[in-house]
Simulated scan of single mutants.
Amino acid sequence: MNPATDALAAAPSLLAVAIAALISALVTWISRPLLQRYALARPNARSSHRIPTPQGAGIAVIAATLLVASIWAAWANVAIPSALLGATVLIALVGLADDIMSLPVLVRLVLQAAAVGAVVFTAPETARIVPALPLALERGLILLAGVWFVNLVNFMDGLDLMTVVEVVPVTAALLLLGWLGEVSWPAALIAATLCGGMLGFAPFNRPIAKVFLGDVGSLPIGLLLGWCLLELAWHGQPAAALLLAAYYLADSTLTLFRRIARREPFWSAHRTHFYQRATDNGFEVSRVIGEVFLLNLVLAGLAILTIRAGSTAITALALLAGAIAVGLVLRRFSRAQAS
C-alpha cells in the first residue's frame, strides 16, 4: 500500500462503517413519518408482510453510503469512479419513481441498462476478466450480467432483513480483502460504507419490519454491490466474486428458469423464490434469515480461502463446497417442515 491507502486501513475504515451506520439510522428514523404518509407498501397476495408498511428507507442507506464514501475518498486521495456515483443516483431515482407510481417494465430496464452501461463502458480497457474475449463482447456480457444482478437484488428483497443478511457479510468480506490488498481500495471503500449503511438500517427492518428499503434502495444497492464484485473479478479473482454472490445468484436464477420452463410471466411480481417458499413451508422468518446469514459467512470464508491459497485445486474445491452448501439450503427451503 502507498501512504494514501495506508490511511484507509483498519481503524479509519471501521470508523467509516460506524459513521455510515449512524447517518443511515438517523435518516431512516427521521424519514419514517414521511414514508408512512407517501410511500406505504400495502400487502397483497405476493407480499411477505401482513400490515401496511412504509417503504423507501433505501434513501437513507444510499445517502449514507455515498456521502461517507465521497468524504473518505477525498480525505485519503482515492478516486471513486464518477460514473459509478452518477449511475447510483440515476438508478435510485428510477427506484423512487417506481416506488411511487410503478414504471413500465421496459422503461425500468432501459434506465437500468443505461446506469449499468455507464459504469461498465467507462472502465479502463485494462480491466478484464477473460482477456481472450474481444473487449466489446466481454463488456456486453458484463452489461447483461449487471442488469440481471441489479434486478435479482431487488427480487430477493422480499423478506425482513433478507438484504441485510446478504449485503453485510459480502461487504465485510470485501473490506477485509481491501485490508489484505486483494481488491481495489475504491471498492473496499464503497463496501465499507455500504456495510455501515445496511447496519444502520437493520434495526428498523428486523421482524416485524417497521420500514422497507423499497426499489430506491434495492436497485442502487444491487449496482454498488455488483460493481464491488466486478472489481474483485477484474482484480483476478472471479471465483471469489462468484462465491460471495452465490446464494442470491442461485435462488434468483433457478427461480427465473423454473418460471420460464412453466411458461409463467417471469417478469411479473411473484413469491416463488426459495426463501419465500420456505416461509410458506413453515419456516419462521428468523430461521430463514439466520440460515442465509450463516450460509453467506461460509461462502465469504470460502471466497477468502480461494484468494489467499492461490491454488487452482483449492479454488475448485471451494467452488464445489460452495455449490453444495447453497444447494443444501435451497433444498431445505423448498421442503415443507414436519408438523
Rank of each mutant, 00 (worst) to 15 (best):
L106E: 10
I80Y: 07
L84V: 03
E125C: 09
V107E: 02
V119D: 02
T122W: 08
Q112T: 12
V110L: 12
A118W: 02
V119C: 11
I91A: 15
T122L: 10
T126S: 09
T88I: 07
V116I: 04
V116Q: 09
V94Q: 09
L109S: 08
L85I: 14
A127F: 14
T126L: 08
A114N: 03
I80W: 07
I91H: 14
I80K: 06
G95I: 01
G95M: 03
G95E: 11
G117A: 02
G95W: 02
A92N: 09
D98H: 05
A83D: 06
T88W: 06
P81A: 09
A87P: 14
P104M: 09
L93F: 08
T126Y: 02
T126R: 02
P81M: 05
T88G: 06
V119G: 09
D98V: 03
R128W: 14
L93W: 05
V119P: 06
A79M: 12
A83H: 03
G86V: 12
V110F: 06
L84C: 11
A79N: 05
D99E: 00
A127L: 08
L85M: 10
V94N: 09
L103Q: 05
A92S: 15
V120F: 02
P81W: 00
P124G: 05
R108S: 05
A87E: 05
L85D: 14
Q112G: 12
N77D: 13
D98M: 06
V78C: 03
T88Q: 11
A127D: 15
F121H: 03
L109M: 07
L84Y: 07
A123T: 03
L103K: 04
I100W: 00
A83N: 08
S82T: 13
S102I: 14
V105H: 14
R128G: 13
F121A: 07
L106G: 15
L103V: 01
L93C: 09
R128Q: 12
L96Y: 09
L85S: 15
T88K: 08
D98L: 01
V94K: 05
L90T: 08
I80P: 04
V107N: 14
A113F: 13
V105E: 15
A123C: 03
L96P: 02
L103I: 00
L106V: 15
S102F: 15
V120N: 04
A118C: 10
I80Q: 04
V89A: 12
V110S: 06
G86P: 08
A97M: 07
V120H: 04
P104R: 10
L109V: 11
P81K: 01
M101K: 07
V105G: 10
V107R: 11
V120T: 01
P81V: 01
L109R: 11
D99N: 00
R108W: 01
L90W: 07
V110R: 11
P104F: 11
L109N: 12
A76Q: 13
V94Y: 04
T88P: 07
I100N: 00
A118D: 09
A118K: 00
G95N: 11
G95D: 06
A92E: 12
E125P: 12
S102Y: 10
L84A: 11
L109W: 06
